[in-house]
């Protein structure tokens, strides 16, 4: 197995040549948001959140890191202005489609998104395709698939009837980023919650309070600090 050298956010790193860029970045501890990626499934590249910038002779270009094979000598920047602005817009678009997803609400808060500029819809699927791939690739069933084009795209069983091959294993629900309990913030359902962002927590001066042990509290990632993080 060969090793390639790449430069990530100014730091040189050596990674396995068979990896995708996303694998390499996560191995190196760089936080890259994703919604359609799952380690056990074929990368699909539709949520576009994992896009990063690569420097080339002729300028920079954006690549989908979950699909992009690492190459010797590439120079990668994961949190440039262009990338971060784009990611925020993408989360805004998805949240406007599925406002009740806790995953999306949390992501929005983490990215410091404070208002949604589009009319809210009330869909319950972001069409990430995780369920379709899991059903086919891991459960060896292939009971569900995509139909339709563009805005009419949806995930269904053939003829929309009870599938003959579905074993009711529930894997599709397990992997779905939207189907979980909706966000229980202050704001009514169907709106941007932002509770985790707005809440001024009773945070002690030092790390180690009970709050800090709660999973994904996120309260310390306030807007100002978020921007600091983004810049580095």
């Amino acid at each position: 197995m060969g090793i390639v050298t790449l430069k990530v956010n100014g730091i040189e790193a050596r990674v396995d040549e068979s990896w995708t860029l996303l694998e390499a970045l996560r191995f190196l501890g760089v936080e890259i948001p994703t919604l359609c990626h799952h380690d056990g499934l074929t990368p699909y590249g539709v949520c576009r959140l994992c896009m990063v910038e690569i420097e080339e002779k002729s300028g920079t270009k954006l690549v989908t890191s979950c699909l992009y094979p690492v190459k010797e000598g590439i120079v990668v920047k994961t949190h440039t202005d262009r990338v971060v602005k784009g990611r925020r817009m993408l989360v805004e678009l998805m949240l406007a489609r599925c406002p009740n997803s806790k995953t999306l609400q949390d992501l929005a808060s983490k990215m410091g998104i404070e208002n949604i500029r589009f009319k809210m819809k009330n869909e319950d699927c972001i069409l990430c395709g995780l369920c379709v791939r899991l059903c086919k690739e891991q459960m060896m069933s292939g009971a569900i698939g995509f139909i339709g084009r563009g805005e009419k795209r949806e995930v269904v069983t053939p003829f929309r009837t009870k599938s003959e091959i579905c074993r009711n294993c529930g894997a599709c629900m397990y992997v779905c980023p939207v189907v979980e309990l909706p966000c229980r913030g202050y704001n009514p359902q169907g709106e941007l919650c932002n509770s985790c962002l707005r809440v001024v927590p009773e945070c002690a001066d030092e790390y180690g309070q009970i709050m800090c042990y709660l999973e994904s509290c996120g309260s310390c990632v306030k807007k100002g600090e978020m921007n600091e993080l983004v810049k580095t």
Binding site: V46, R48, L93, M94, A96, K119, I126, F146, G148, R149
Partner: peptide, 21 residues
């Protein structure tokens, strides 16, 4: 484009929809 987008990726499907809106 909205009518002809395959709908696979978010920016094309959701983005052009919102542009059109």
């Amino acid at each position: 484009i909205l009518d002809e987008s395959c709908g696979k990726c978010i920016p094309c499907r959701e983005g052009t929809g919102r542009l059109s809106e």
